[in-house]
Structure formats: C-alpha cells, structure tokens
Design a protein around this nucleic acid. Structure first.
Ligand SMILES: [Mn+2]
Ligand SMILES: [Mn+2]
Ligand SMILES: [Mn+2]
Ligand SMILES: [Mn+2]
Lengths: 218, 218
DNA sequence: ATATAAATTTAGGTTTGCCTAAAAATTTAC
DNA sequence: GTAAATTTTTAGGCAAACCTAAATTTATAT
C-alpha cells in the first residue's frame, strides 16, 4: 500500500461505499454525484486509477475496486471514524460537527499515528454515528457486538438485528415501528432505570432497558 | 484570513522563519533551499502570493510578509506546535518522531479544532522541543533566548529547548541523557575549541561548542 | 572598470485535477 | 426495431505546483 493523494483516497472511498449497494460495477454518474465532480472528470480519473492497479474498469462498464483499492478505501474509512471519535470523545465536539473536519484528517499519512490514536481512544468499535471502525487489518467488528443499551445520547444507530427472537418481542418492536435497517436516534437515557427516549421515523418513544439490550445496532 | 493551500502555508511559514535572521527581504534562493524546490518555482510562487496580498515582492529584491501573511504563518506555526504537543503528550511519540506528522497536521483547516486542541492539552506554552506556541491571537509567550554556549563555568542551568530540531541532533542529546527540564551544571570550558565539560544527572560529559550553541537554557 | 560568478527571472514543459461542449455508446420508450 | 433519452467518453482548456535550460540582473574580484 504505497502512497495515495487526497483525491485518490476520496475516489476510492466513494467507490467503496457505492459498491456496497450496487453489486455491478459502480457507474461514472454515481461517482460523479457522490464527489460533486463532472462525469468527464470521473472518467479520466478512473483511467488513471486503473493504471495504478487499484480498480478494474472497462469503458461504459463501471468500476470495481481491486484488493489493493479496497485496502486503501477501508484504511481511509478507519482513519475517518477514529478521528471522529477523537473529536467527540476528547475535544467535546457534537456528533453533527465532526464530519467535515474528519474529511481532512482522514488523509493524514502515518500508519503509526492511526494505530496510536486508536489505542489512545481505547480501541473504539464504533464511531459517534454508530458506524463500525475497521481494525488495523481492515476487519470490521461484527455488528452483533453492539446492543442499543451500550449507545449514548446523541448517537444515531442502525438496527441490525435482535437478540431475543421470540414472537412476543418481535411483535412488540414492530408495533413501535422499529424494523431492520431503521435509524434510531438516542435522545436521552433515564438514570434510574436506564430506559431510553429515542426517535424512530421522526416519532419519539420510550424503550425499557430490557428492550434495549435485545436490539443489535450498528 | 481566508483559506490558503497546503503549499501556500508552507511558503509563508518558511518566509516567516527566514525573515527572523535576515532583516532585508528574504531571498529567492533561501526560500528555495528551505522548501527544497527550484528557485524558478519560488519566483513564480512569489508573484502569485503577492497578488494574494500576503507579501511584498519586487523583482530581485526578495520577499517580506504583509500583516496578513504573517498572521497565516504564525497560525500555521501554532497548529504545528500544538499537534507536536498532542503527539508527544497524548500519543506517546518521542520528540524526535513528531515533526513530519505535524508537517501534515498543521494544514488542517478549522479554527475551532485548533482552539479546542489547545484547551485539551492544557494551553501549553512550549512544544516538545521548547519552541514557544503563539496563542489564538498570534502572541508568543516570552521565551529565553539564552543558549548554553553563553553560560559560564560554575553555573547550573535548566534545558528549555533546542535550536537545531533535526532528528540527528535530538537523537544525539537523547543518547547523552539530556532532555527538556534537565539541570546542566557547567564544570569547565576548553579554551581552544570552546567545548564544555558538564554534569547532567550526576554524569560528567563533554559537549562541543556546536552542540552548546543549539541548546537553549534558562 | 571590467570580467567572472552567483542569484534571479523567463520561457517552455509536465502532472494532477478540474471544467465545458461535442461525440459516441447504451438504455428506454413506443 | 427504431427513435429518443440518458449515460459515458472524447476533445480541448485551465490553474496550481513543480521542473530544466536559457536569459538577465546583481554581486564580487581583480
Ligand atoms: Mn463522517
Ligand atoms: Mn475525504
Ligand atoms: Mn516541528
Ligand atoms: Mn508544512
């Protein structure tokens, strides 16, 4: 993994995320939109990145990252999310303020810096928005590691599964309007019983600590 | 103080330091050497920076920063030194390892980030090499500019910083067991080469006059 | 004072990343 | 299955930073 420019890392990161939903090659237009550059600029960059060996690309057929390309993308995601943790946990920024600063910090090149930052932060598994942080080998934590009761007010997390799969529990959360893939925004945690006030689909509702322990999030 | 590129900040910082000793305009060659670019590149950049209003420059007459230019330079120095403190104090880097990483971090643009970092670090007045850190208004703390070679036998002085911050020199004095805050007792000065016999931590050792000139004391 | 040397600028190129406008390929619509 | 719409690529340019080689200006030395 040699050195990549600011811009190259941004392209690789964008293609990495876009290729998660679309299973074919990532389209020129999709990249263009995501990076707010013109499609012609993207075409040119794709040719350059292909020559560097970080992606496969044939005219009109979209792009797919190579192993090396994915490694660079994941490393950039890792840096981005670790810095977001730093900004929120150590410098007391709000979770909504940190993205743009992390967009800059994610391009600092020093393997040692990233690894020591991770250690300093106590090896966090998720960033302030609940997104998983890959380890130094590029391995993401399994989402089932994190249940809702381990999250903090201010976080927004995605429902990834349930621990209790009984019909009673599933019916209960379905009635509340909570389903797989939904975003839960944590508003407040009651001190005395650890129940949570949350917002889902714009609706405010209360969840007991027992319910929270049974919802896996990411 | 609008936004400046990575490169512009580096030029302004270099000119700022160079204009501290040379009281006339800073020469093209001096900048070229300090930034390891060719003189012709510097000439071109000086014209551009003049148009931006950050320095005065007339053909063959060298460059001088305007108030705005100096503000940018000092702000960059501030960021550089605060990040060096962070790396040493919080991430346990050695003081000889941090300069290159700080060269990158100093260009992150967020006033808020810099100020909160400073607060997180406890408003340090000096970086790990003993260099003074300007406050958010660009004001430097008063720093002693007394170097060891100006001291006399019999004196005991405290190490406050180094003039030469190269890894070679830092490693050298680290090997000798000399660090920030250490007490140096001057035993004898050799007449013929002005080398010093000193005692640190109870150990006797010899320092060349070149080494002595590069150690700031108080 | 003139010749030589050194410093600086000019001229002409390169690479990275971006743009607009036009052409070509692909997809969709009838 | 062709025509229209959309997507993508090509062609040609531009700005920031860099370079080499050739002038030009300034400094130095006899
Ligand atoms: Mn983010
Ligand atoms: Mn980015
Ligand atoms: Mn430094
Ligand atoms: Mn720098």
């Amino acid at each position: 993994m040699s050195r990549y420019t600011f811009t190259e890392e941004n392209y690789l990161k964008a293609i990495y995320f876009l290729s998660q939903d679309a299973e074919k090659g990532v389209s020129t237009n999709a990249i263009s939109e995501s990076l707010e550059t013109k499609p012609s600029t993207v075409t040119e960059m794709l040719r350059r990145l292909r020559e560097k060996g970080v992606l496969h690309y044939k005219k009109y057929q979209g792009a797919e990252l190579t192993e090396e390309g994915e490694k660079v993308a994941i490393s950039t995601v890792r840096k981005h999310r670790l810095w977001e943790c730093f900004l929120v946990d150590k410098l007391n920024f709000g979770w909504e303020e940190v993205h743009d600063i992390a967009e800059q910090l994610e391009h600092i090149q020093s393997r040692q810096l990233t690894d020591r930052l991770e250690e300093f932060l106590g090896f966090p598994k998720y960033d302030p928005h609940g997104d998983p942080i890959p380890d130094k080998n590029g391995v993401f934590p399994h989402s089932s590691d994190l249940s809702l009761d381990n999250c903090k007010p201010g976080q927004t997390v995605k429902v990834r599964g349930v621990k209790d799969t009984s019909p009673e529990f599933l019916k209960y959360i379905a009635k509340l309007g909570i389903g797989l893939g939904d975003d839960i925004h944590i508003l407040e945690i009651e001190d005395f019983d650890h129940s949570m006030m949350i917002a889902v689909h714009g609706k405010k509702l209360q969840l007991s600590s027992i319910a929270c322990k049974n919802i896996f999030v990411q």
